[in-house]
Design a protein around this nucleic acid. Structure first.
Lengths: 147, 147
DNA sequence: TTAGGTGCAAACTTTTTGCCTCCGA
DNA sequence: TCGGAGGCAAAAAGTTTGCACCTAA
């Protein structure tokens, strides 16, 4: 399937393998999946594939800029493809993740680059805060529980 | 020292202890420190303090909204006080962290709230991208290493 | 006396490393 | 045959839990 990946790998003296294809497919299919979930997904087709291989492959694919990982909340990093571009708003109260189009950040991206020379990556930012549901009753709830 | 913390704890049937004071002091002093580093700092004064206590205390202080943790890069989360407010630009190439004033995000914060009802927390965001050093030669470097 | 807090050790989770074997060019 | 890849197990890193003891109210 992925002739371009095969080609890229070949140029570097690496090989295209079923495992690599499966991991890449899983990332594309799942989006925001943890290594563990990706592994589970791969194992439905090829049960022998080891989690170690998943980690190694994710690392490889990330190096080739085919996938990307972000730390959305706590522990588990989540992997996605570059094609799946959007901004994550992570509620640090309920953990909910809201996705918004990257265009929302255009101004910010320009400003950051101008002022700090920092090239923001619009595709996989994780912004934290409170989602609508948690923000609204927040003031009242905090007061109530606080006393 | 922290009479307000002592008071808050007392209201909840908890006690102020030297350990808690030391951990809070360490967080205030170090900023962006990992639990391990905080523990090390505390242990210079009180060597008997256990890392377990540091974790438990950080958890407690976070529940009281006195400290906050963010996942800046990989593994270790970093803890800061609310007073230490700024935006982190994390270079996902070299891992460097640039700090910029939270005012840079004012527009974005307003927009997110208006459009999505999401209340962004300006104090401890981690934005990813490439820092000036890594961004400038990026195009050339990638091409060069790619072939 | 009672309950909270701590230290210590062990368990647990997630990720990495070492090593050996297999397989394609 | 040579070196890249993968599987397995052990190690490492980070965090949590169980438990006994100590201490302030």
């Amino acid at each position: 399937m992925d002739t371009s990946l095969r080609h890229t790998l070949h140029k570097r003296g690496m090989r295209m393998t079923p495992q690599r294809q499966l991991v890449l497919d899983a990332v594309r299919e799942l989006q925001h999946a943890t290594p563990e979930r990706i592994c589970g997904h791969v194992q439905r087709v090829a049960p022998a594939v080891n989690i170690t291989t998943v980690y190694r492959t994710l690392d490889l694919l990330e190096g080739l800029d085919l996938v990307r990982h972000t730390h959305l909340g706590h522990g588990a990093p989540s992997y996605s493809t570059r094609a799946h571009e959007h901004v994550h708003l992570v509620c640090h109260h309920c953990g909910d993740v809201t996705e918004v189009p990257p265009e929302e950040l255009t101004d910010l991206i320009e400003r950051m680059q101008e002022r700090f020379g920092f090239v923001l990556d619009p595709s996989h930012l994780a912004l934290s805060g409170r989602c609508r549901a948690c923000a609204e009753p927040a003031g009242a709830a905090v007061e109530a529980s606080g006393s």
